[in-house]
Design a protein around this nucleic acid. Structure first.
Lengths: 138, 138
DNA sequence: TTCCATGCAAACACTTTGCACCGTG
DNA sequence: CACGGTGCAAAGTGTTTGCATGGAA
């Protein structure tokens, strides 16, 4: 599995660095972490790493298909490893609770968008905002 | 219709100001405009208005249900007037084309999220990213 | 030994806030 | 004439970039 990672990096012409590995491990450990949270996590395990290195590598790791991001708030995006099975998110506007949902739930819509518009939806990036049962009036 | 606006504002205990009216008109005229674009539009019709006034009033107008916003890019949000019929957006990652889609298309999913999670989705805020027919490989 | 990657600091894009003055109700 | 709204400037948050140095291949 670390070998998968090493191969994936190298075969893209990029280099395997300590920082890259640390950042990927941090994303795997945290799930749904912002760049800042990832920075904090990385620093727990190793000496100082620069914030710009986090941003640059999250971009690289996403290009390589090793991590993904979603927008769960109006603030910073959150990253998660692709190892987890694909899912999308529903987020409550009031209590900010996040629930991961199986792609099957939106499959019919994806099909319809493809049929009607020739549009292929990126389900893994999808976030649906709304109100959860606990926060609904009444 | 301007009266609707005036009433709506006043009955909320807020005041009717020239800036508020200009900002609402700008949102109506532009559709899917960022705060900065709205600022530019407002300045075409009137003297200088401050950026902070734009932000403060977009928030107020949204609370009053007169405008809505969606996130169509990784940059600034875009605002549109509620006068338009409700819709959600699909956005192409490559060419950034935006298409407005009827809520009916996602109604089944909304129903399912409500049934399974007690979650009431905010369809008007929804943005689905993906790839349009023109930008698909093959 | 070649370039890609990193650290650092500055710049950047967008938004928010504190405070004095302005103007609606 | 009270209190909400505005302009202005400064600060805040999140992200990007230029450049010199460092290290993987």
């Amino acid at each position: 599995m670390s070998d998968d990672f090493a191969d994936r990096i190298r075969s893209s012409g990029k280099r395997l660095t300590a920082q890259r590995e640390l950042i990927l491990r941090a994303v795997e450990a945290l799930e749904h972490a912002t760049p800042d949270e990832i920075l904090t996590e990385v620093r727990k395990h190793s000496a100082a790493v620069n914030a710009s290195t986090i941003y640059r590598n999250l971009e690289v790791l996403e290009e390589l298909g090793l991590v993904r991001h979603a927008h769960l708030s109006d603030r910073a995006p959150t990253y998660h490893s692709v190892g987890e099975h694909e899912h999308f998110h529903i987020v409550c506007r009031d209590c900010h609770k996040v629930v991961s949902v199986d792609p099957d739930v939106v499959a019919p819509v994806a099909r319809r968008l493809d049929d009607e518009f020739g549009f292929v939806a990126d389900i893994g990036h999808l976030t649906v905002f709304g109100h959860c049962a606990d926060c609904l009036p009444g």
